[in-house]
Amino acid sequence: MKRDISDLLRIMAQLRDREQGCPWDIEQDFASIAPYTIEEAYEVADAIDRGDFPALRDELGDLLLQVVFHARMAEEAGHFDFGEVVAAICDKMWRRHPHVFGEASVPDAAAQTELWEAIKRRERGDAGDASALAGVARGLPEWQRALKLQLRAAHTGFDWPDAHAVLDKLREEIGEVAAEVDAGEAPGSQRLLDEVGDLLFVAVNLARKTGVDVSAALRHANRKFERRFRAMEALADEEGRPLAERSLEDQEALWQRIKR
């Protein structure tokens, strides 16, 4: 049977029905659903990363459900409904693409990006916050928020000249972390939090200046570590002595064998 968005809206309305709906769905609110929304977005990204299009179809459906869920709760509270969500994004796309829907023209994608950012800055200024950092959401993963803050600052000219300058700063930050560790600073202390935070912030800057996608790099590193660690476990089991029963030196030797 062919389905469309109206079917999904009806399903969500029935799930939220106070008398005949699903108890779990009924008791949810915006805050309780928000983590699921974030999780579903990451699952969409994972399906894309794996090139799994059947999974992508399903994950996009799960993400759409999140939008419908939030819109339904907003409608129940008298804030807005799904139609207004659609209208808002349609208006935004129309407004931010004057080169497509209006008289403006842009020669290439880079110029279009500049136009897009200029329109967004004007909108933020109209909303009462003219800072270059306005509108960077606090709910983003912190590495992503760091990247957006850096990009906004760079747009004003406040930026490292090249990757070499960032590498120098990274070495400096590593030295400052090492100094706190050598001084016996307690694990988790405010001083270490500050210094490690600076180190991570500069690392994001390094990825940006070298043209590396931070999320993709971390995914790659995670997959590589997991692949190698699982291989270590398997090799240790084959030799009759589980990984957890070995010394750190033995574990390191296994790690080097796997890498080779």
Rank of each mutant, 00 (worst) to 15 (best):
L248W: 05
V68H: 01
R16L: 00
T37V: 12
V196C: 08
A244H: 06
Q28K: 04
L243Y: 15
R228Y: 01
A31H: 13
R50S: 04
I119V: 11
G188V: 05
D4H: 10
D7R: 02
D182M: 13
F229K: 11
M232P: 05
F201G: 03
L199R: 06
Q28T: 09
E19N: 15
R57E: 13
A55C: 12
G21R: 03
I26F: 05
W24H: 06
R18Q: 07
R230L: 01
V67S: 10
A165W: 08
A118L: 04
I38A: 08
R121M: 06
L248D: 12
L64E: 00
L199V: 04
R121N: 02
G21N: 07
V212P: 04
V212L: 09
V100D: 09
V85I: 10
A207M: 15
R219C: 09
L133M: 07
W255E: 01
L254V: 05
R171A: 14
S105P: 03
A207C: 14
D52L: 01
R241K: 03
E76S: 08
Q256Y: 02
Y42V: 02
A165H: 15
F82C: 01
V68D: 02
E185F: 00
D108Q: 11
R18D: 08
R246F: 00
V67A: 11
D162F: 08
V196I: 14
A31C: 07
D159H: 11
A47P: 06
H70W: 01
M1N: 03
D108I: 02
D108Y: 10
